[in-house]
């Protein structure tokens, strides 16, 4: 009994120790908060709420949009950004035929080996190749871009919160910083080689506005290529590159959930039936 009492006594002392230690920090923090002015955050905007064909539990790809987005990537983004987890063969999933994919791949140049000398060279792409990177390595990428390495875009919409909306908002969000913002946060003024964008967390982005004028890309389906249209199309395309299985996932989900609902109702009825023998009845 005295032994158990001593266990509890030790516990009480240890508990009070932790409490004093942590509350000490609380008091110091409270004192600092009262005497020092907290550094405010630069305000950035959350992505716009846009609507997408693949939204919601029944969402589907808009393949025409994905193809337009591919064209925007091809003609604009691919100058600096790689797409290394996407293979040309994957393009069959967004509505291209096998022959079209083959021709598309052949028009690209990928790194290869000279079959006679074994030296590094290039060759036309095959459907099994992955989208080539614009730079041979990170050092080259950094050197060509003022030390800001353009990130790979394959997973971009999954690697940012609310990614599809974020990419679209960012691309159409370039603007001059407002006078009020600069007055309140002088540090938010873009430095040399940086561009103001309210959707970028620190407001200053090393990427120059990539989509600047209507008609920058000529769409094959005749859609007018406004900056907004191109931004949305490429954001949709990058949603597909980030998760090509998104639509299949949702479509597989429904039968699974409906079956489970059915099975759960059966399990409930069976459980009720079994327990009716011993449950007190009202």
């Amino acid at each position: 009994m005295t032994k158990l009492l001593s266990v509890r006594l030790v516990a009480i002392l240890v508990g009070l120790g932790f409490t004093v230690a942590v509350l000490w920090g609380f008091l110091v923090g409270a004192y600092n908060a009262a005497t020092e002015e907290a550094a405010g955050h630069v305000p950035y905007e959350h992505p716009k709420e846009l609507s997408w064909s693949f939204d919601g539990p029944f969402g589907k790809w808009d393949k025409a949009q994905l193809q337009r987005g591919l064209k925007v990537y091809d003609e604009v983004c691919s100058a600096c950004h790689s797409l290394k987890f996407v293979a040309f063969r994957d393009l069959e999933q967004i509505g291209y035929s096998e022959a079209m994919v083959k021709a598309y791949a052949a028009a690209k140049t990928v790194p290869g080996i000279d079959p006679n000398t074994g030296e590094a060279s290039t060759r036309p792409g095959l459907p099994t190749d992955y989208f080539p990177s614009p730079y041979p390595n990170n050092v080259a990428a950094a050197a060509a871009n003022n030390n800001a390495i353009p990130p790979d875009l394959s997973l971009m919409t999954k690697a940012r919160g609310d990614g599809t909306n974020y990419v679209a908002s960012l691309l159409m969000g370039y603007q001059e910083p407002s006078a009020e913002l600069l007055e309140e946060h002088p540090e938010a003024a873009p430095g040399p080689g940086l561009y103001h964008n309210p959707y970028f967390p620190n407001l200053n982005l090393a990427m120059a506005p990539p989509l600047t004028s209507t008609g920058q890309v000529t769409y094959d389906d005749g859609t007018e290529a406004t900056v907004e249209q191109m931004s949305k199309d490429v954001a949709a395309f990058l949603t597909w590159t980030a998760e090509p299985t998104l639509v299949k996932r949702k479509q597989t989900g429904w039968p699974v959930l409906i079956f489970l609902l059915f099975a759960t109702v059966l399990a409930y009825m069976s459980k009720k039936q079994i327990w009716s023998a011993v449950k007190p009845k009202k």
Partner: peptide, 19 residues
């Protein structure tokens, strides 16, 4: 500061209040 108060309570609860 909120986590400090909650942490203090956590240790108080198990090591002081319960006994």
């Amino acid at each position: 500061m909120l986590s400090q108060i909650a942490t203090a309570y956590y240790f108080l609860h198990f090591l002081v209040i319960l006994p």
